[in-house]
Design a protein around this nucleic acid. Structure first.
Lengths: 287, 287
DNA sequence: TCCTGTCATACCTGCCAGGTATCACCGCGT
DNA sequence: ACGCGGTGATACCTGGCAGGTATGACAGGA
């Protein structure tokens, strides 16, 4: 009577994202009419108008926006359930599942810490196998939510810890990375204002949740690309202290006095009850 | 292909909870054979054995336990989606939905704070209507998760904030509530050890998530009952400072030196994006 | 005014969810 | 040893609904 089926949520989210029945149907691999009908049924069952059909496109109502957000969360939870169940599948005897844990890490971030963590955890008795899943800049939240990962290393203020349990591991300052020999490298320290408006060196832009903030600087996709652009004297970047480990000879790092500190956390879905995860977190907290 | 339907999750959770196909089918209002078949299909689709069918009952495998936990979370998320969408339904124009917020509060806890919060929020411009939903001792988490409530007042260390966003509002100490005239009331302060083992006054037990820890003291269901039992000289209780407001003449409160402080939080689902909620939280943080 | 793009309607069909009847199997009493 | 009760699995059928095709209604633009 009043329970939404996953299928209906999938359909609605597709339509709400495309704002176009035809394209949504194509994306779902079905014809448009049954999709229209399914959405109508959904609206009737909920007793709520979700979409405002003006000829020439579709708009979300307030209730539609709510269902889009809540429905996405619910869909994530269901695919996470399927994935985690499959993952737990191989080992079976209730005694020793010998779980695998998938750990999501921003590529090249917190490398030292990660190495220490993996070594320390492997030395524990009964440690599970850890699969390291390298991911993009802000992808960890999504990976945890949809079950592709069980635990992640996150970095505030870039990642949001909302909805996860977490434990802070380390705090570090940030540095400006400049081309070696640039006039600013003569200074002992810099402020954010100093590097934000260098005329010849626009500040590099990282994607936040897949999109780039507008600005003059180049759009950076990975660390190597960034290193190269800095070495070529085309840009300047603000990165955590620990990034010094991958700097080149053509780079110079200058500490920033007023950049927000970067805190590395280990984070996991709040409802998690895995013993292996608990062990990993305990190990991390002791580092 | 690989997406779990809500129906399948409902079925599996029922079987996993009952550990009995017949009873689960009855609970679901269906016959047993289709249920058996549905679970088999689920196992085949996931490629995982979820249940160990020993004649004479059923047991969960490791993967089954994972799916039970994750599936419950996913089901909660879907019913929450439906409920919140319905609730957002009445008002429609994208401009002013005039939302209602449902606020879950442990009955009689933080009464003063709640009054101040409601008054302050009502005085705000554009404040939404707040429906106060009184609930049991540890029910708030469940209400938030399945969408019956949008926001709650919680009290650590009793409530867990895992999976929610929250803002701490007040901190208070705890007091021991004794029958007036009891020898211990002569003391200025007490320690937990003092009240834990009073021979004639066993410590009252509150339910935690629906179950009572074992112990000698009486099982308390509500505050009136507790007040009466203390007044009759049958038990002693440890309660937050603010509970002094409902004490009787036959009660005496003595501060405890080593009880953990009680922190009142306002908490809400981490992914919430409601403007009305944001306003309420802002008001609360300013109190 | 036609044409185009959009969503809704009408109607049909095949599949699958669910029901009934029954089986296979085990434990347990006598 | 034998039947009996209780368990989950199998076989088979059927109705409803998900999904497809064809087409309509309607708005906006040239």
């Amino acid at each position: 009577m009043d329970t939404l089926e996953t299928r209906e949520l999938r359909y609605f989210v597709a339509v709400a994202e495309e704002l176009h029945f035809g394209r949504a149907a194509e994306r779902l691999g079905m014809a448009q009419p049954p999709l229209s009908r399914a959405i109508q049924q959904l609206e009737r069952r909920l007793g709520v108008c979700l979409l405002q059909r003006n000829r020439r496109g579709v708009r979300l109502t307030g209730a539609g926006e709510v269902l889009l957000h809540e429905g996405r969360a619910a869909l994530d939870a269901t695919v996470a359930a399927a994935r985690r169940t499959r993952r737990a599948g191989g080992a079976d005897s209730p005694g020793g599942p010998r779980n695998r844990l998938v750990l999501a890490v921003k590529a090249a971030a917190s490398h030292e810490l990660l190495r220490k963590l993996l070594d320390a955890y492997a030395a524990e008795p009964d440690s599970a196998e850890i699969e390291v899943l390298p991911c993009g800049i802000c992808e960890q939240e999504e990976l945890l939510r949809d079950g592709r990962a069980d635990v992640a290393l996150m970095h505030t203020p870039w990642n949001s810890l909302a909805g996860f349990d977490s434990e802070a591991l380390t705090t570090e300052g940030q540095v400006a990375v400049l081309p070696a020999g640039h006039p600013l490298t003569a200074r002992e320290t810099l402020s954010l204002a100093d590097v934000r408006d260098v005329p010849d060196l626009p500040l590099a832009r990282w994607p936040t949740h897949g999109t780039y903030a507008p600005g003059p600087g180049p759009e950076i996709h990975n660390q190597t690309q960034l290193a190269q652009l800095i070495a070529l004297g085309r840009t300047v970047a603000v990165v955590p202290d620990s990034a010094r480990s991958w700097l080149w000879a053509e780079h110079t790092a200058v500490p920033l006095t007023d950049a927000p500190p970067v805190v590395t956390h280990i984070a996991w879905p709040a409802h998690s009850r895995s013993l292996a995860l608990a062990g990993l977190v305990r190990t991390a907290a002791r580092l």
